[in-house]
Design a protein around this nucleic acid. Sequence first.
DNA 1: TTGTAGGCGTTATCAG
DNA 2: CTGATAACGCCTACAA
Lengths: 337, 337
Amino acid sequence: MVTMQQVADRAGVSISTVSFVVNDTKPVTPETRERVLQAISDLGYRRNTIARALASRRTRILALIYPLIDHRNHNAFIESAATAAREHGYNLVLWPLHSDDVSTEITSLIQAGFADGVLLMEVQLDDERVQRLREADAPFALIGRTRDLEGIDYVDIDFERSIETAIDDLAALGHRHFSLVVEDWSATPLAGYAPPIRTEQAFRAAIAQRGFEGAVFRAPHQAHAVSTIVDRVLREASATTAIISLHDEVSAAFVNTLPHRGVAVPADMSVVAIASAPTLAEQLDPPLTVYPGPGGELGRRAAEALIARLDGRGGPRVQTLIPCTLHEGGTVGPARM
Amino acid sequence: MVTMQQVADRAGVSISTVSFVVNDTKPVTPETRERVLQAISDLGYRRNTIARALASRRTRILALIYPLIDHRNHNAFIESAATAAREHGYNLVLWPLHSDDVSTEITSLIQAGFADGVLLMEVQLDDERVQRLREADAPFALIGRTRDLEGIDYVDIDFERSIETAIDDLAALGHRHFSLVVEDWSATPLAGYAPPIRTEQAFRAAIAQRGFEGAVFRAPHQAHAVSTIVDRVLREASATTAIISLHDEVSAAFVNTLPHRGVAVPADMSVVAIASAPTLAEQLDPPLTVYPGPGGELGRRAAEALIARLDGRGGPRVQTLIPCTLHEGGTVGPARM
DNA sequence: TTGTAGGCGTTATCAG
DNA sequence: CTGATAACGCCTACAA
């Protein structure tokens, strides 16, 4: 490993001068700078991240708390957050965390001086981890949001607006009777997981406000629950002409199963998915009409919000909501008479 | 931040003694150890990861080179690798890398002293990154494998065995005419991506050896290519009674589209997927018969192989192949007469 | 504009 | 068994 000292020696300057040109932290005459740069490239010098972190008390590491639950495509969040971090000179480390580690471990990476800040995903309405991070005074940003949003940076899907858009798009085609299907996490560690809860509330409010009819179904992730949900909807909300689903497996089940029940899609029933995985649509026939979740956007913006905070660019809290936008498929049509 | 010195002061010992008990690196009398531990817990001391890294010349950070290509569920790899790393006291950072950064950046994280080792995924048969890592003398392990395997640690899917198993499972039901569909990456940066290449070779060999008939189709990831592949197979390999697919979108297209072509699944045509995403099966109707890719297993084993190397537990190279095993669905039946 | 020197919090080597 | 003390590589006042 080549050190600053070696560069300094070769360039005939002191170690601090090297530091100044490397970090662009103090003015240096063009000639000296040139000599230093030359020495750097001759020797193939790279400044040691760790020593730099120790001396500057800034690791430039972001920790992404990674929920150990098998759910969706976290992919897009992660990749975009990592990319954004790197573009800003940060690194993203994955910190998979079991729910029972939470209380002890959540802040240890901060206290151990390992990370400058934390990114949290799959946030619940009342999230213990957020509390811990606050107590530890650790900088953090959320992908998702808690109930209490005072003084926190977050980026989340705008479920309210997404659901209203979906309803209005369908209403324009004459639909008046809707069924919403959301995931049921109530018996799991993810019990307070916000998206289905917010979506259900927004759905009920929007339906009421417009004078439509709406039924809500909650489906767990067990395979048999998914397969029975189709019949439940047909039986318990038989007037339904449009199904809105926040549950990818269920969305697929509807498209695949309805024809076997004598219900044509979209002639007899329209089906749309909200906040779906990006690849879901084209794996179905007809391709599903979806409002895909803006995964990449969320990851990137959350990372940038956190970094802005860390870099001392104060400013107001980042509290961004991004709606899901329509990606047309073949499962929506005029309401049947 | 509470430091070792503070602990030492409170325990009435020297800083080195604290280090000895914290790292369990030299014998300490029970009484002193007790005093030190007490001081540690009183003060809530945690040893600083960065300082430790600097002094010990070991960061305990693993870099996962993350290909910026939208492909499959990398999820399982990543999560399991991160978990395994943490279980061994390492951290996994995500290092998304564009293909054009490769030559310059691939080793910088090592040379910059940031990571102890590198995990590489989506490996190509002749992979420049592997070459660079070798040149830089950086410890690494692969998820996947290159052509030349001399002296490298890797964990990969056993495509040969997986494809043979699939063929034999189908042959037991009377199938003799097979079509294989693989992804076509030839016009992309992932041109030398090994899985489709190895699978195709293994398929041809297995078919020949058993005296069966086999056709191979390559499909890019564009949506229209996917939708036309069904008709191409029906037209160009009309004797086919069983389709084996390494291409999840195509697998879905077969299950969804064949019935519209008057071909019942599985009565007229059996369909199986190899190395598929774990959730693909249940999104189709009937549920797809799959041999899912052992994503989590691969990530975990690769991380552990790298760590073993880093921790100086020498031993022979880890060169592990894991076959995909059958997960039954409803798309396989006896060959039509 | 450049150099000197004192940290940053640990680890590790040597004496005692 | 325990304690000084010198690295580790860099940053940053403070001096010159």
